[in-house]
Design a protein around this nucleic acid. Structure first.
Lengths: 171, 171
DNA sequence: GGATGCATGTAAAATGTTACATGATTTA
DNA sequence: TAAATCATGTAACATTTTACATGCATCC
């Protein structure tokens, strides 16, 4: 048993979504993510797929007559159940997660105003670029979720800029 | 050389903030974080401190006459430089990070409307609780940053609820 | 014919989790 | 005096990164 890690769940989700597909394709999906959190490295994905097969959550499908080395996998009923349990886990879904800017802001008092301004400007530029980015899978709803996230992130940035300009200004 | 990981940087930041202090105290700070990302487990922190000392970023301070076993550490000039470099790294600061709800929403089509509503309700309850939470360190600015983040997260949630109610309603 | 992409994997190293183990001190 | 907190650490295990290695197929 044991709960799925986020990576395991995401991999199962991709196998579910993409039907019988390869570890390579799932790794590529991870690499295509706008989040730095999903490296999609071979060293992470292939052993992961192996473990999921051993645990009965994924199943290899026999390749008809393969001209090229290639193993397709599908999610099993057990795998779907495990993925579903991960999906509806409200406790974990309600966590704060990780944000690389938020982590830094805690120590913002070690920066000068100029450094702080420069940092926020770079983050805003990155956020603008991410907001414009087409995400994968190219489904309208996914794009809307991404847009909603980026909107929230930009409004956070605006609040922070406001907060810091007050902080630095003489009062 | 090598860039600092986020955990290394956060540890250095805490040693910097708390002055000569123990690994135990820094671990406790991590555990006090509202984010599930900072476990503050002994097995993570003590080996980390050891590595940071070996790399010359942290330095043990001789304890006067210690009644209890206890090693205090301070950040070195090199450590401060490394922490600073991490802080102003706009490229990393501009990343999307990890959000446990966002990760799940990608696979939202595997859920029924009722499950989806239940999940979002739980996440909203968690976000409300987090928004009210006093964070550590109890500095007004930290609290304001936390509040700004939670505001952004709640506005994201509202957008998502709106989006999904449109998605589920017959059109 | 060479670059790129598809496809799989491993090996070494680093990192982190979980659980255990110890013992002093402080508080109720 | 019992429980909680301070304080340090290790051992086994799981996971992930980085880098290497291979070979086929396709595109230019």
């Amino acid at each position: 048993m044991g709960r799925l890690t986020d990576l395991e769940a995401a991999a199962l989700g991709e196998f579910k979504r993409q039907g019988p597909t390869t570890g390579y394709a799932v790794a590529a999906s991870f690499r295509a993510s706008p989040s730095e959190f999903w490296s999609g490295s071979a060293g992470a994905v292939y052993p992961l797929v192996k473990r999921l097969v051993e645990r009965g959550l994924l199943e290899a499908v026999p390749s008809g007559e393969a001209q090229r080395e290639r193993t397709g996998y599908v999610i099993t009923a057990q795998g779907t159940a495990a993925l579903h349990a991960w999906l509806v886990d409200g406790e974990r879904a309600g966590g704060m997660g990780f944000d690389p800017l938020r982590s830094r802001l805690i120590y913002f008092d070690l920066l000068s105003r100029a450094e702080c301004d420069a940092l926020l400007a770079q983050v805003r530029a990155a956020a603008d670029a991410l907001a414009r980015r087409e995400i994968w899978p190219a489904k309208p709803l996914s794009q809307k979720i991404h847009a909603a996230w980026m909107r929230a992130r930009l409004s956070f940035l605006t609040d922070i800029e406001q907060l810091f300009s007050e902080e630095f200004s003489p009062d």
